[in-house]
Amino acid sequence: MKGDFFIVWEHRTQVLDGLYCTLFLLFFSGFASIVLGVLITPLLMSPKRFLRSSSKAFVDAMRCVPFLLFVYLIYFGLPSLGVRISNWSAGAMALILYNSAYMAELMRGAWQQLPTSYIDSGRAFGFTGWKYIRHIILTPVFMRALPMIGNQMIQILKDSAFLTVIAVNELTHELNGIQSTYFIPFASFLTALLIYWLICVCMEFVMSFINRYANERRA
């Protein structure tokens, strides 16, 4: 058993490559899905019916599709439409589209819980349209949604493991490779698991910092 872990240790550069890939996917897709979510949220709350229902259709579609199938759809579906993208891009795209729907949905929830008095005060001081959303609504919504955004980031980390099915060289993929070469499933998968857990612990730590900052700016 000790020997099994030793084999994993000998392949540490491969494991680290996988870790970098996973971390990069996490930050890149996480950031992009937050930005996209911030842009979709006002559409979900729009007084214009067309914008509201089409954005809601997107969010509902994403929420009801198993992530694994969605990854397949993008990876195999896009080339049949004539769009050729790399494994990594297909994987990142799937993560971003899928999770931006969740980000938008949880920010919509935070928006609906804003006290009506902020909305009134924004209106009373002459804010309208995008200015009103940008200055009065979005930051408080974001501050309120932060703990849930942190949870969703953890979800992105875990979803990224699925991308092994389209051969993205992330952590799961690398350790699965080691496992199948040397037939050491327990040691490999346990190592992967511990690394994912460590990443989560670090994210929790960062979130608690951000939360402390946000607390002062919440009502």
């Binding site: 902020y118 005060s121 924004g122 009065i136 930051t139 408080p140 700016r217 919440r218 009502a219």
Partner: peptide, 8 residues
């Protein structure tokens, strides 16, 4: 209820 903007 004051309605100050909490993020500012």
């Amino acid at each position: 209820s004051f309605a100050l903007w909490p993020h500012l």
